[in-house]
């Protein structure tokens, strides 16, 4: 049981990382990783929607007719996203402004619908919670690792605190769209390199 919990929670980190390995949901990752605070906000929003949708669908999985499953998934995800947006507008207006269009776009984030289709609609509730948390963790780590690099190099700050003093001139490109592609490309390259090395080692054993 314990190993199963651990396995569900950690598989999103590297082995099935939704961003770096499965390459899903890249649009929001590229656009929101401008600053660490935005990335954190997006991760929380994503976790909220993923976990709640997975739980709801796991509970209802016996009452969802097979031919209607996609529309019902979308209705459920969209409702949670809209609820989230109301809550953000009411209680976190600055975060809502920063994330802007990317909150409504969580609806069409293929990571969520992918997890629901392949996992939550077939598995019990507890497993689905863990799966949702694990996949959100992987998403969060990916978007944060990009955002940290971009904010440090592109703005000279981390979480808004200046790192290098006023004489440092940040390379603006990193907070512009090309910087997002550059950083994600390099990070995917490093991860592939490391995992290839690891699997080669395993094979030689």
């Amino acid at each position: 049981m314990k190993t199963k919990i651990k396995q569900l929670l950690t598989k999103g980190l590297l082995k099935e990382n939704p961003v770096f390995v499965l390459m899903l949901g890249l649009c929001s990752v590229l656009a929101v990783s401008v600053s660490v605070i935005n990335a954190l906000g997006m991760t929380l929003a994503f976790t909220f929607v993923t976990v709640l949708s997975e739980v709801t669908i796991s509970v209802l999985r016996k009452w969802i007719p097979k031919s209607l499953r996609i529309p019902i998934f979308i209705v459920i995800i969209a409702s949670f996203v809209t609820i989230l947006q109301f809550l953000l507008q009411a209680y976190f207006p600055s975060l809502n402004k920063a994330l802007g269009i990317f909150i409504p776009l969580i609806v069409v984030n293929c990571i969520i619908i992918g997890r629901i289709e392949s996992f939550a609609s077939k598995k019990p509730v507890f497993d689905s919670i863990l799966d949702g948390l694990g996949i959100s963790l992987g998403y969060g780590i990916a978007i944060l690792s990009i955002a940290i690099v971009r904010e440090i190099l592109g703005n000279g700050t981390i979480l808004g605190y200046s790192l290098f003093g006023t004489s440092f001139e940040p390379a603006l490109m990193f907070i512009l769209p090309p910087g997002a592609f550059l950083v994600i490309g390099i990070e995917i390259g490093i991860i592939n390199h490391v995992s290839k090395k690891a699997s080669r080692k395993e094979a030689s054993k």
Partner: peptide
Amino acid sequence: AFLVLSFP
């Protein structure tokens, strides 16, 4: 291009 985008 890197310089123009980064240090306009």
